[in-house]
Nucleic acid binder design. Structure first.
Length: 111
DNA sequence: GACATGACGGCAG
DNA sequence: CCTGCCGCCATGT
């Protein structure tokens, strides 16, 4: 079994720990969970996570800071709106100062 | 079982 | 900086 049985659980928990005004990437989460080369699985899990609620999937973007999953939300502008509401500037579907807003799961556990 | 697709990432050109 | 190709795992046809 390539994926851990609790893969969804782990993804949800990590994403839930992303503080407001910050964003993380699929790759970072995947790497943190041990699926380093399978960032797609993270996106796949998050897609289901939206329906699961409680998971701020809008805080997860790709490595360029691009809001790749905006079309998976109820409204195509929902993701961007949520981010801007939290203080994350978004322009052309891309997080402004992405490096600055980036939050790494390993960084959180590093405390 | 094979082929195509997808919220990605890294590398080469 | 941008584009294209490959690798990755799971799902749908």
């Amino acid at each position: 079994m390539p994926l851990p049985p609790n893969f969804f659980e782990d993804v949800y928990e990590v994403v839930r720990q992303v503080p407001p005004g910050r964003v993380t990437t699929y790759g970072a989460v995947a790497s943190f969970l041990g699926l380093k080369s399978s960032a797609r699985m993270v996106g796949w899990a998050l897609n289901h996570a939206i329906a699961a609620s409680d998971v701020p999937a809008h805080r997860v973007v790709n490595r360029k800071g691009l809001l790749t999953g905006k079309y998976h939300f109820s409204d195509s502008g929902q993701m961007e709106a949520l981010l801007q509401a939290e203080g994350v500037a978004v322009e052309s579907d891309v997080v402004v100062d992405f490096e600055e807003k980036f939050w790494d799961p390993s960084q959180a556990l590093q405390l």
